[in-house]
Nucleic acid binder design. Structure first.
Length: 603
RNA sequence: UGCCUGGUGGUGUAAUGGUAGCACAGGCGACUUUGACUCGCCUAGUCAUGGUUCGAAUCCAUGCCGGGCAGCCA
């Protein structure tokens, strides 16, 4: 069974409900919109992380539950920070996360398409239709479709800006950045009008057209909305709509010396795509008035989109700030954006987290307006639950110590039946080899055992999982006093199907034949930070966990030699593991520990 | 100190004027050829004070505490 498929025996999760879904349901009941259209609008200036996963699941989930659509749109209005590397990673991450779950509501547009001009009741309008849902899959896979991009709307956005100027609702301002800041005032102090605020429509039109023609240097002028410099909401104090930047754009090319700012581009992009519910995080709450102002100022003919805000995800011991994640990459704290210790979607994927588990986690934390901090245990619990149903059980020894079963001939190979997954309704088995020399986990032996130690100790007995009970007779040490070998007697009558198979011992341990085994690099991960809220730290680099990665050469049962990246494994009594899709080379498997098993004894 | 916004067990979240419930965490026990899984039991909460009401987590008032906003970032 692949970890990518959902367990058919699992009960379908109840449809989530939250205040945004309640609003959507009410709008549907009122027949306010024909179809619910949401959007996921990342800026391609970094990799997607677990916080984005929450937004993806919310937006795609709402589309999915209402037979709607969710557009993937790049909010690419700032070319100096953006890059195609990010565009590609974002598309891959979104596809992976929604695969088999919401691909049918993924909104893409026809390749190269731009908003089309048309008329509604005599009023001019622009609209960009998505690829029809029935054709999405074939068009996406055939590269006939692509994500939406705000930069595809630069022409329409420019036309709307001209319209705003004609309506006396926008003006060209010559204030320097510093002056603009001074004139804006502060939260407690009203701002004051720009001296350029009352330029004539003609002058504004002329100046703005020349800005677009590239006549002025970077930063020389801006286009501003004419609202209210004394507004208690800072974002209504004549916010900037356009700035001059003589740089090429990674998607739109080299034709634009002016670029729209977020507030101006976002609401109109939503409108152009026919978005009904524009869902974002709480920090945009104060921008909502501006979002509405721009759309209303233009008196657009179609129903307007509305913005709704929710609290972003905060997960203990992790960071979700693209800037800080970039720092971790640049400072080489991690190897890359997709390092398995990173909370990026690509990092989590590489670590072995199933998409369904990630989805369930970000959905289970709920959608509210309360700024919360979710415990790491919640995430870990969801991951373990998924992996438990899906993972193939295998025997592997991470830190081996040699055991000699003195009563077995050197050339004897005893085949034992091992269960592949006890959680299956009808579990299958495979054969593993028991030989005279085996490896056990060094943690499973103690010369001086602590109280209640169930594992191997001098004179004690343990069961070798799927095999027989062994008794420790002798501890062999080297000159330095280090234990090099444990000499034991195997009681073969305790094997399954033999006379004493029912004999109980307290401990059962995992093991691997010293002959029939393979070596493999195994990467053991721990949390990246030592504190629950690294983001609250003055310098988050100072709370990086120095032992977030431990690399060992492990002994694995031979069946693992043919492992594939789609399989998920439970190395019994150790944890869940997956092949590293990036560094594994033919004949040289590298396994990542996705997560350890719960260990109640360690407490 | 201006505006916006929020406060339910340790954590997250439900209850939309009518029995404060669920999950995770924690504790105890059962089961176990994974000290896993599973199962059973337990612990623990409406920020405060008033008001409205037969009845308030929910409505109102005041207070307290938290988050957000002053990029030509998104």
């Amino acid at each position: 069974m692949s970890a990518e498929t959902t367990n058919p025996s699992a009960a379908p999760a109840p449809a989530p409900t939250d205040f945004i879904r309640d609003i959507v349901a009410q709008h549907l009941a009122e027949k306010r919109y024909q179809k619910i259209v949401t959007r996921f609008p990342p800026e391609p200036n970094g990799y997607l992380h677990i916080g984005h996963a929450k937004s993806i699941c919310l937006n795609f989930g709402i589309a999915r539950e209402n037979n709607g659509q969710c557009n993937l749109r790049f909010d690419d209005t700032n070319p100096v920070k953006e890059d195609v590397e990010y565009v590609e990673s974002i598309i891959a991450d979104v596809k992976w996360l929604i695969d088999g779950w919401a691909d049918h509501v993924l909104g893409f547009k026809a390749k190269g398409a731009k908003p089309a001009a048309h008329t509604i009741d005599g009023k001019p309008d622009f609209y960009l239709a998505p690829v029809p849902s029935a054709q999405i899959a074939s068009h996406v896979s055939g590269h006939l479709a692509e994500p939406f991009s705000a930069s595809d709307y630069f022409e329409q956005l420019y036309l709307y800006a001209l319209e705003l100027i004609k309506r006396g609702k926008a003006y060209v301002c010559d204030l320097t950045p510093k002056e603009t800041e001074e004139y804006r005032g502060s939260p407690e102090k009203p701002g004051k009008d720009s001296p350029f605020r009352n330029r004539s429509v003609e002058e504004n039109l002329d100046l703005f057209k020349r800005m677009r023609a590239g006549e002025f240097p970077d930063g020389a002028r801006t286009l501003r909305a004419k609202i209210d410099m004394a507004s208690p909401n800072i974002w209504l104090r004549d916010p900037l709509l356009y700035r001059i930047r003589h740089v090429a754009h990674h998607h739109a090319g080299a034709g634009w010396p002016i670029y729209p700012l977020y507030d101006y581009a976002h609401c109109l992009s939503d409108y152009l795509e026919g978005i009904t519910h524009s869902i974002c995080t709480l920090e945009f709450e104060v921008h909502r008035a501006l979002y509405d102002w721009i759309l209303e100022a233009l008196e657009l003919p179609r129903p307007l989109p509305h913005q709704y805000e929710f609290a972003k995800l905060n997960l203990a011991y992790t960071l979700v700030s693209k800037r800080k994640l970039l720092t971790l990459v640049n400072e080489k704290v991690v190897t890359a954006w997709d390092d398995p210790r990173m909370p990026t979607i690509s990092g989590l994927r590489r670590r072995g987290i199933p998409a369904a588990a990630l989805r369930e986690f970000v959905t289970s934390v709920g959608v509210t307006r309360f700024d919360s901090l979710t415990e790491a245990a919640v995430f870990e619990n969801v991951v373990r639950n998924h992996l438990n149903t899906v993972a193939l059980r295998r025997l592997a020894v991470l830190k081996p110590i040699k055991v000699v079963l003195t009563n077995l001939p050197a050339d004897e190979v005893i085949l034992c039946d091992a269960t592949n997954n006890p959680q299956d309704e009808t579990p299958t088995t495979r054969k593993i080899s028991l030989t005279r020399e085996i490896f056990i986990e060094s943690d499973d032996f103690a010369e001086v055992p602590p109280p209640k130690y169930f594992r191997l100790k001098p004179g004690g007995e343990v069961r070798l999982k799927y095999a027989c009970i062994i008794k420790l007779d002798e501890i062999v040490k080297d000159a330095a006093g280090k234990v090099t070998e444990l000499r034991c007697t195997a009681d073969l009558t305790t094997r399954k199907g033999e006379a004493n198979s029912d004999k109980k011992v307290k401990g059962t341990i995992h093991w691997v034949s010293a002959v029939k085994c393979i070596d493999a690099e195994v990467r053991l991960y721990d949390r990246l930070f030592t504190v629950a809220e690294p983001a609250a730290e003055e310098d988050f680099l100072k709370v990086v966990n120095p032992s977030s990665l431990e690399i060992v050469t492990a002994k694995l049962e031979t069946s693992l030699a043919t492992a594939t990246t789609h399989e998920r494994f439970q190395f019994e009594r150790l944890g869940y593991f997956a092949l590293d899709a990036k560094d594994t080379k033919p004949g040289q498997p590298i396994f990542n520990r996705t997560i350890s098993l719960k260990d109640n004894w360690a407490k």
